[in-house]
């Protein structure tokens, strides 16, 4: 209402109404308010407190714990199966390798799980991260708190990375314990035929956990990027799984072998580089570079979309 004429027009049309301008001046007539205190300072531990809350939510949620339990069972089942089969002396290859040393079950378990089951667990948690909060409506309250969009995204991603490493560590620990119970401990024979001490073997398991976890972190970033585009968590989760499976299909087509190094799942299995003598650091490094590229690209997309998104759920 900029001109007196329009004020008049409105007054005529709506008799008895006080024009907006008058409301303003009546507000000004109120006694002077005390100057508001300085804005409360951001607490130094605020980021970690929110991350703690996020981790608590993730690791108390029955669904997520059930997934950890499932991946923990697989090495036990694989171990027992191999232990039964190993009685048959004629078996060779993988069975002989695993039955010959307690540490080998960890690598066998990774190769069974790393292409499907572990990616499922990670994409459930990461795909649910933003979409789940949006679907439940809690996202609007987190942002009004105000959690801050970039901060929330960072916390959600770190949480998914921690969960990915937890899944990887659970698989390794379960396999290690099962292996130590069922199979002989001692020096480990590598794929290249040379033998390393048990301590060296454990170190190599640690390296492979670090590597596989990094792969899960890259997948988590992809799932997050999908998660910011939807309010239906199952959409982001299924979308990530479809990507993983499409990659497997592409890998199976020989004519498309040129694509293979760029597909994320191709790099998941490179953890077996630790079974070479010496460790094939080249394979590990190029895998890590690929993971880094996926993480950078996915998180950039997620941030670019989420930071300006209208939250209408």
């Amino acid at each position: 209402m900029s001109t007196a004429e329009s004020t008049e027009a409105r007054t005529r049309r709506t008799p008895g109404l006080v024009p907006v301008a008058e409301t303003l001046s009546s507000a000004e007539r109120r006694p002077a308010e005390p100057v508001p205190p300085l804005p409360p300072a951001r607490r130094p531990w605020a980021f970690w407190r929110l991350l703690g809350s996020e981790l608590e939510l993730t690791f108390k949620r029955p669904r997520n714990l059930a997934m950890l339990a499932v991946v923990a069972c697989v090495p036990v089942i694989v171990g027992i199966t191999l232990w039964i089969v190993a009685g048959d002396e004629a078996m060779g290859g993988l069975v002989a390798d695993v039955a010959g040393n307690s540490l080998m079950l960890t690598f066998a378990s990774f190769s069974f799980l790393v292409l499907l089951l572990m990616p499922i667990t990670v994409s459930v948690v990461a795909g649910d991260s933003i979409a789940g909060e949006a679907g439940a409506g809690t996202l609007r309250y987190l942002l009004a708190a105000p959690a801050g969009r970039t901060r929330l995204l960072a916390v959600k991603y770190l949480n998914a990375v921690v969960y990915g490493y937890a899944v990887t560590a659970v698989v390794a620990l379960s396999a290690l314990v099962t292996g130590l119970i069922l199979f002989p401990a001692g020096p480990m024979t590598l794929l290249s035929g040379s033998t390393v001490s048990m301590a060296e073997g454990l170190t190599r398991i640690l390296i492979s956990v670090g590597y596989v976890g990094a792969g899960m972190a890259a997948l988590a970033a992809v799932a997050m990027a999908l998660s910011v585009f939807t309010e239906v968590p199952i959409g982001a989760i299924a979308g990530t799984m479809v990507l993983v499976i499409v990659c497997q299909v592409l890998r199976a087509i020989p004519q498309l072998s040129a694509l293979e190094p760029y597909l994320l799942p191709s790099r998941f299995t490179s953890f077996d580089a630790v079974l070479r003598s010496p460790i094939d650091t080249g394979a590990l490094m190029s895998g890590l570079v690929t993971f880094g590229a996926y993480i950078t690209l996915s998180l950039t997309i997620a941030w670019a979309h989420f930071s300006g998104k209208d939250i209408t759920a």
């Binding site: 605020a46 703690g52 939510l57 959690a147």
Partner: peptide, 29 residues
């Protein structure tokens, strides 16, 4: 309070409030 309540169904009322308090960077823990 925007468009009705929205909370985590598997948490208690108190745990839900703790969650939203943690999201406020100025709230003293």
């Amino acid at each position: 309070l925007v468009e009705g309540p929205a909370f985590y169904p598997y948490l208690s009322g108190e745990a839900n409030l703790r969650r939203f308090d943690a999201a406020d960077p100025t709230a003293p823990a």
